[in-house]
Simulated assay, not measured.
Amino acid sequence: MNTDNHRQDVELARCTRLLNHGPVTIVTSQHDGRANVMSASWAMPLDFDPPKVVVVIDSHTLTRRLVEASGVFGLQLPAVAFARQTLAVGTSNGVEIDKFAAFDLRTFRGRQIDVPMLADCVAWFECKVIPDDAQRHDLILAEVVAAYADSRVYSHNRWHFEATPELRTCHYVAGGTFFATGEPFEVQATPPAVTGSSAPQP
């Protein structure tokens, strides 16, 4: 899955839309010549302007140590075609092995941060940590300083996976089980019913 020629900038003011549907994410980090990569299911948008995200990273992990030391991290969205690697980096120990080499992960350098980004994902956030007391609870708050996505499945601030099912984002359950992002559908808001009563409404 080659995304090199399809990475297009996403407007920062709207970049949190990339996360609205709750996909599994992958965190990359680096400090003082040491790099690591881990999957993270608990990541969500927090604010719009400037855009912010929250990611849960256990305080005992190598990734957490690298993120706290560098103050930056990469957050990316894997697709169905990358599910095997997503599981692998989430179930192996970065202290014991170099996951990038062990799982043959292609990377490129971040634009605004000095962190390896995974080339074979479909969306990317470059993030700078915002110091906050919430970090005592394994939460990392960060400002998004750059965002881009694979134009084959994201454009005009919307996901469109219909033509490329292997590029659908993933939702992790447990035990190696994933769900692919499903088919989109739209509804129109129903106007409130008129009761005919003259009594004041709350």
Rank of each mutant, 00 (worst) to 15 (best):
W42E: 04
N20D: 06
T63C: 15
S59Y: 13
T63W: 05
L62Q: 13
V24F: 12
P45N: 10
S39V: 00
H21S: 07
V24A: 14
V53G: 05
V53Y: 04
P45F: 09
T61A: 13
L19P: 10
D32T: 07
Q30A: 13
I57S: 06
G22E: 01
P50F: 11
M38V: 08
K52L: 09
M44R: 10
G22H: 00
P50H: 08
L46A: 11
T28G: 10
A40N: 02
I57G: 06
A35V: 08
T25D: 00
R65Y: 02
Q30G: 09
P23G: 07
H60W: 06
V55P: 12
D49A: 15
S39R: 08
H31Y: 11
P45Q: 09
Q30E: 12
L18D: 07
F48H: 14
D49H: 13
V56L: 15
V53H: 04
Q30K: 12
D49P: 02
V56Y: 09
I57D: 03
P23W: 03
A40T: 00
V54S: 13
L18H: 06
M38I: 13
W42R: 05
V24C: 11
P51I: 01
V37K: 08
Q30S: 11
V54K: 08
L46P: 06
A35P: 03
G33P: 02
C15I: 03
T16N: 15
N20K: 08
T28M: 04
A40R: 00
R17A: 05
N36D: 14
H21T: 02
R64H: 14
S39C: 07
T28S: 15
R34T: 10
G33I: 02
S39T: 12
S41K: 01
T61M: 11
N20A: 14
C15A: 11
S41P: 02
S29W: 02
I57T: 02
Q30P: 01
V24G: 11
V54R: 14
T28Y: 06
G33E: 03
T16I: 15
M44L: 13
D47A: 15
N36A: 15
S39M: 12
C15P: 03
I26E: 02
P23T: 05
V53N: 05
R65G: 02
N20C: 12
H31I: 00
V27S: 09
L62P: 07
S41A: 12
S59C: 15
P50W: 13
P23D: 01
A40P: 01
T25F: 02
R65M: 09
L19D: 06
T28I: 03
R64F: 06
P45Y: 05
T16R: 14
V53T: 04
G33C: 08
I26L: 14
T25H: 03
V27N: 06
L18I: 15
G33L: 08
I57W: 01
V37S: 07
L19R: 11
I57M: 04
V37T: 10
L18T: 08
L19E: 04
H31V: 00
D32F: 10
